[in-house]
Computed example of a mutant assay.
Amino acid sequence: MKKLINDPKNVVQESVAGFAAAHADIVTASTDPLFIVRSDAPVQGKVGIVSGGGSGHEPLHGGFVGYGMLGAAVPGPVFTSPTPDPIVAATKAVDGGAGVLHIVKNYTGDVLNFETAADLAAADGIEVRSVVTNDDVAVQDSLYTAGRRGVGGTVLVEKIAGAAAERGDSLDEVAAIAERVNANVRTMGVALTPCVVPHAGEPSFTLGDDEIEIGIGIHGEPGRERITLEPADAIVDRLLGPILSDLPFESGQSVLLFVNGMGGTPLVELYIVYRHAAEVLAQHGITVVRNLVGNYITALEMQGTSISVLKLDDELTELWDAPVQTAALRWGR
């Protein structure tokens, strides 16, 4: 294992400290308990939004803390959910009197710990709503979930819900927007290589030199099938087919196309993926009116990609375009 780390036990704490130092104009970090919060939190009269989960998926979630997106993010150990205590502390830190929305990826530990934290926060008088993301079409169940996994679509939920909160929507309205995005986005991914969790020191799974895993999860969970490496266009076809049939997407639809890297994938390859994905959507009469390309929800150094397609309407497009200022997404300010 070759990684730019010191003690594997301190990876998350040291990374969060570096992140907070690099982006001190946007965020501050609490060390005990560990969470990242907007530097201007709490914003009075505004719905606070908290997300989080295991580390190793950066920039998710800490990179999306700031104006127009998350109020706070709670990083757990690598690929392991944070416990309820820091989630409660983050919830209190963003509570401006209008309630708090939890955005939770559908992994068993995340769901249970955020539920417990919501109950504890409610006991302290904070109104909490929770939205669970489950956009992955690859499998119905995995070792980590009951039902579909929350993956790339989580980024889109956080951005659009964050914009709704920033414009002054109520807690129920922000939660409804988040649910609407989750209901209208579908994702599927592929891994070319495994990743190495720092404290394990060895790959999380094995792939032959000429093998890829279609439908992989962001922790290395098994996908739909393991096949011999194919050209990029053929892989894109394998990913887009289940996405387009699942919702389904129809001719005349406007969409946001999100091509995400899994951490070790260069942009030159992601744009090859985007090129063909946009062509396939056009062949189905689907118009890409917004896009996002890059490494935004990763699995450490895994090579691979995920494709997310979100149905857009006028309101969701307006909220996507709304100003945002975070470490990982910035426009309009």
Rank of each mutant, 00 (worst) to 15 (best):
K159C: 04
L247G: 03
L120Y: 09
T206W: 00
T298L: 05
V185R: 12
T193K: 07
G241M: 06
G96T: 03
D32I: 04
S51L: 12
T287K: 11
F114K: 04
P33L: 05
M69V: 08
P248H: 15
A121C: 01
P82L: 14
P266V: 00
G97S: 01
I227D: 08
S130H: 06
Y271L: 07
D169R: 09
V236Y: 02
A22N: 12
P59M: 05
E230I: 11
L156N: 09
R129K: 13
A73F: 15
V78D: 07
S30R: 12
P75R: 03
A183Y: 01
G150H: 14
A178E: 10
F258E: 03
T317L: 10
N106V: 13
T145P: 05
V11H: 05
I297Q: 06
N134I: 10
T91Q: 07
P266M: 00
S142M: 10
T326D: 03
G208Q: 03
E279K: 11
P59C: 09
P222D: 09
R238D: 08
K46N: 02
D233G: 09
N184W: 04
L60I: 11
V273G: 02
V155E: 00
N10K: 12
W331A: 00
S81E: 08
P86L: 15
A178V: 02
G97N: 01
N113E: 11
T187F: 12
T80N: 13
V132G: 08
H199Q: 11
G153V: 08
V157T: 14
G68I: 08
V157L: 10
G263Q: 08
Y274N: 13
Y144T: 11
P75W: 07
V65C: 02
V151L: 15
D210E: 10
V288K: 12
K92T: 05
T91F: 06
T228Y: 04
N184T: 13
A200G: 07
P242Y: 15
S170Q: 09
